[in-house]
Design a protein around this nucleic acid. Structure first.
Lengths: 200, 200
DNA sequence: GTCTATAGGCAGATAGAC
DNA sequence: GTCTATCTGCCTATAGAC
């Protein structure tokens, strides 16, 4: 806990992660290079290798930090919102915030490149998707048992559907640079979970 | 119409497109190279440049052929299926077929890489998405006016939601190499459009 | 239409000075 | 921690022979 860092508010490693994260979200893991990151930070490629052994290690650190931050956001939702439907809206707005910066979800982007990723990065992507699915599953199950949400089938299937629908809504909204397109799809998806059970 | 081609059932250009298409669907536009394609076909990179001036032109040809084939599939659905709900199921099964080959939709993959694509490819991706949205919009509007489908809001919003949900379902199913994951999400999405109007 | 040969550039990565 | 210098390899692309 010693404050050996007096000059910089954030260390170099953090700034590297910040720039690389944005580049991956915008261009993909196969669409950015060490030269891009170094150029933006005004340092050399060699310096990057001091902080992250290689591109694969940087990529792994990227996902782990992103997952941790996302996990905190989910905990924050759980701590401040009790109604299931409102939790889902807060969840969707996390995605909307990402899209507003013309970015794709980091792990949605990496999911598209999954087959080209080094194994450690694959594992981290799966962990992110699993964590999100689990959180959504819990919210959906709770909401249905409380009678505020309504859907057929298992909560897990519904959770996977919601996760996919939000990721896909970002995917197709980005070429149009139109956040409203995401908003409409997100609202539509969540609306299908509201209300009383459908008549059979 | 002269049959100057006697040996090969399909020309070299077609086989280049076949291989490149699969590679882009599996690995993305930034994840494949001329060397990959040439290697699989047993020809040289230089030969590729005879058929396609550059990677950008190959990419454009890829999308245009894919869009044409997809358009034919949609026409086939229109010609053989009359019920809106069944049309949507047939549409979803087009995606399921793609996913079964461990592939992403070509244009879903390219949508993720949109910001790195040359302009002509961007235009072609947009055309694909627009064509799909238009087709879905017509099916959804017809289904609702006939009373076989039920949804709130504009048919266009619903169409964009369905398109995103299916693309996203492929996106998140692929890391798990689990087509059932897509099937569940697709079924769930389409089911939300069925039945009688929800009670308010 | 396919080849060999090669250009010119950028990729990720390393050694070693400061 | 950051630098210069350099390596090796792959990338897209072209010229020109066959």
């Amino acid at each position: 806990m010693a404050a050996t860092q007096t000059q910089a508010p954030t260390g170099t490693a953090q700034r590297i992660l910040d720039v690389a994260e944005r580049l991956v979200q915008e261009r993909g893991y196969n669409g950015f290079s060490y030269a891009n990151v170094a150029g933006e930070l005004g340092i050399t490629k060699a310096s990057l290798h001091y902080h992250f052994a290689g591109k694969a290690e940087l990529g792994e650190a990227l996902i782990d930090r992103y997952s941790a931050r996302f996990g905190e956001a989910l905990e924050s939702i759980d701590a401040t919102i009790t109604v299931a439907g409102a939790k889902l809206e807060a969840y969707a707005s996390l995605y909307a915030d990402v899209l507003r910066g013309d970015r794709m979800c980091l792990c949605g982007m990496l999911a598209s490149e999954y087959q080209t990723l080094p194994q450690p990065m694959r594992n981290s992507v799966i962990r992110f998707l699993d964590a999100n699915t689990l959180w959504l599953t819990a919210v959906l199950a709770r909401g249905r048992s409380e009678g505020t949400l309504s859907f057929d089938g298992s909560p897990t299937d519904a959770a996977q559907t919601v996760l996919g629908a939000l990721q896909g809504a970002m995917l197709v909204a980005r070429p149009y640079a139109d956040p409203a397109r995401f908003q409409a799809a997100a609202a539509y998806t969540l609306a299908s979970l509201n209300g009383t059970p459908r008549p059979s």
